[in-house]
Amino acid sequence: MNDADQTTTTGSVTRMTEQMTGVGASETPDGLRVSDLNIYYGDFLAVRKVDMTIEPRSITALIGPSGCGKSTFLRSLNRMHEVIPGARVEGTVLLDGEDIYGPGVDPVIIRRKIGMVFQRPNPFPTMSIAENVLAGIRLNSKRLSKSAADDIVEKSLRGANLWDEVKNRLDQPGSGLSGGQQQRLCIARAIAVEPEVLLMDEPCSALDPISTMAVEALMLELKSEYTIVIVTHNMQQAARVSDRTAFFNIDGTGQPGYVVEMDLTEKIFSNPTEKATSDYVTGRFG
């Protein structure tokens, strides 16, 4: 979302970007500031009292044993957990100083600013590769000239390191691609609407090692433009790609998950403050 990008795209895209980011893309995004966040499903407290600052234009990894609420926490960052009936939160999540849970804030707008990539690649099966990339744009602005659409498709697919592999078959269905290609197509779809933050929920867990490498390389490129939060079960992956790591844990079944500690990734993996963290990253449990 920097200036160079905007001058290369057409007017309609620029207008749209401004629409989506409110007052226009701020030069230095503020990242996400989470304070005192409790997440409930009905009466059940799933995650308790998270305080976290997610630095802009960096990769933050969330690690921890299964069921500790890291995915729930991730989904609460763009209000996607609300698709489950009864889900609610207490506390605040500030995006550029604005509470995404503030009164009158439409979750639909929040999700346009904070994109998401899922555990399993999920391109729309009935759409072509190009249409998949444009899916989010079509929601925002119905009218889009052919050339503007082509520009966005190329830019997004290049951004997702997929352009060279699919440029000759943009009108083929996205389901014909390999798993890794499909996942990069989903990333292209997410960045096509130029969000500020990209949430990734175990994006490589359904991929083979080669595809995983491609997606990891892509994440490292994307962090110059986007704030990335990734949930992963793969601690090597967290160590390889992330700048900061938060360790989630749970005291027992039925207990809420919570953040044990968050620090620079090197510190978490070499010299963590808490014993639980050190036990987990050295493989003593989890």
Binding site: N78, M80, V83, V108, I109, R111, R112, G115, M116, F118, N122, P123, F124, A135, G136, L139, N140, C186, R189, A190, V193
Partner: peptide, 8 residues
């Protein structure tokens, strides 16, 4: 969810 996450 793919659609909702795009802001649909």
């Amino acid at each position: 969810e793919a659609s909702l996450a795009l802001g649909a």
